[in-house]
Design a protein around this nucleic acid. Structure first.
Lengths: 251, 251
DNA sequence: GAACATTGTTCCGCAATACGGAACAGTAAA
DNA sequence: TTTACTGTTCCGTATTGCGGAACAATGTTC
């Protein structure tokens, strides 16, 4: 089981924090222990340690919730990464232009992890998904933009070990067809996804490359499918593509 | 030394993340190990484990920096805490009214940990300190507001174990005088601090109480001393106080 | 261009460390 | 009260992670 020589406790702590942050309220020791499938006493010890630096807050009712120290880490990420601040004005420009929601995602651990968002000003908006959430590459516009920019061997490696499980009725399930898609995306400069990740949601995205032309992130436009047709995709696809290139140049 | 049965590795990991987030760039294994005063191999093992979930990011140059997963935790804090979203509109209202910078800090581990900020629209603004930063209670307006709202025995306990080390030439060093100050703050409903935490910076604050009238947080107004006199303090002190009470009621 | 001083990474045997079952102590519902 | 939950503490065992030292891969210096 243990391939790498990782530290088990840290792994558990990270999972604990992930669980705690996924909840909107506080959680008890027993509940967490059950979820993580580790003994209560171990869970309790981890929580005590995390409480010492306010990573976790010990509520009055005896339960636990996220503590304010994670804010320190979070702002540390923004600074050290840099990409959030660079991309932000471009996202805002695209939002003002399209009146739709824009996302920034980074390519991390074989997933697209969504790190910034600029909201649509319209009344019909999207369900708010949390910053830091990971999304698969094969069914999202941001992910596909990244895939399209990856070297061919990395794409085949990805497809070999990833099952394209359908997220909606429209999700492309054939690796062969997906590869063809990626070729088309490379030509047109932006990637697409039409209700393949979530019902009634359509999305286009462009990859952000580092100095080695390797994809490190992607920006994407997300809209309700009823007000975003092929013509819109084409119109804003070019702008997404241009913005992504501009951000790449600034890195 | 080790009183509580905490997990040593987790403590080290937390310190590592704190250090990493304090840097604006990436850091190497050797540098981190030297700072934490732990062996390089241990540091490296911790980093590897944290990388597995993108808590830290392994850069191309071999160094390490904060990873995007901390964003997930950070948004988890905002949700589970609730206080940030509740206080935000009040902070904005006070900012619009005073044209100065407003802060929200939570009382955690004997410190005031600053969790939200709304910026002044004026041209002379303040140095941006990072979200999640901890500040002492005795020399900040937010901290003093919290102290003034604490039960008497907890205040004496605090003063017994805390040295009032001067942060500027103006910092109040006498515990006796500080206690008298707190009495005045209780009467007037808001706390003050005049260039006692930082040169040329003046500050007023009000405590946010839970249902047991125990202080859990504070809001504070921070301004350059040259444009914020006693009359301003009095004028906005009342408003700070009222806003703090309103937020307390909403909790 | 060879010698050197760095870096990040790997190995492995020792023993300190954290594990986790079980008992404890509160609290709320039945 | 009884019951069924909570969160918390204890402590002996062996598993787990520790960390010195060797490694490989850079880049710097003379």
């Amino acid at each position: 089981m243990k391939k790498t020589n990782r530290v088990e406790v840290i792994k558990k702590s990270v999972d604990l924090l992930k669980y705690l942050s996924s909840k909107n309220s506080s959680a008890g020791v027993t509940e967490i222990a059950r979820y993580l499938a580790i003994p209560k006493s171990t869970t309790h010890r981890i929580l005590l340690t995390l409480c010492e630096d306010n990573v976790v807050h010990h509520c009055e009712n005896g339960q636990y919730r996220m503590g304010p120290t994670v804010l320190l880490w979070s702002s540390g990420y923004r600074f050290s990464s840099g990409i959030v601040d660079i991309a932000r004005p471009w996202l805002e420009r695209l939002r003002d232009d399209s009146r739709e929601t824009l996302h920034l995602s980074v390519y991390e651990g074989g997933m697209a992890q969504y790190v910034d968002r600029v909201d649509s000003p319209q009344t019909v908006v999207l369900r708010w998904s949390r910053l830091g959430t990971s999304m698969p590459l094969y069914c999202t516009a941001a992910g596909r933009a990244i895939l399209a920019a990856l070297p061919a061997d990395e794409v085949t490696a990805y497809l070999d070990k990833t099952e394209l499980e359908p997220r909606t009725a429209n999700t492309e399930k054939s690796p062969v067809k997906l590869v063809k898609m990626l070729a088309r995306f490379r030509v047109q400069g932006y990637a697409e996804e039409n209700q393949e990740n979530e019902e009634n949601i359509r999305c286009i995205g462009g990859a952000i490359l580092n100095h080695d032309s390797y994809p490190v992130a992607a920006i994407s436009l997300t809209a309700p499918a009823f007000r975003f047709n092929d013509a819109d995709a084409q119109k804003f696809g070019g702008k997404i593509s241009a913005a992504a290139r501009a951000i790449s140049a600034q890195l």
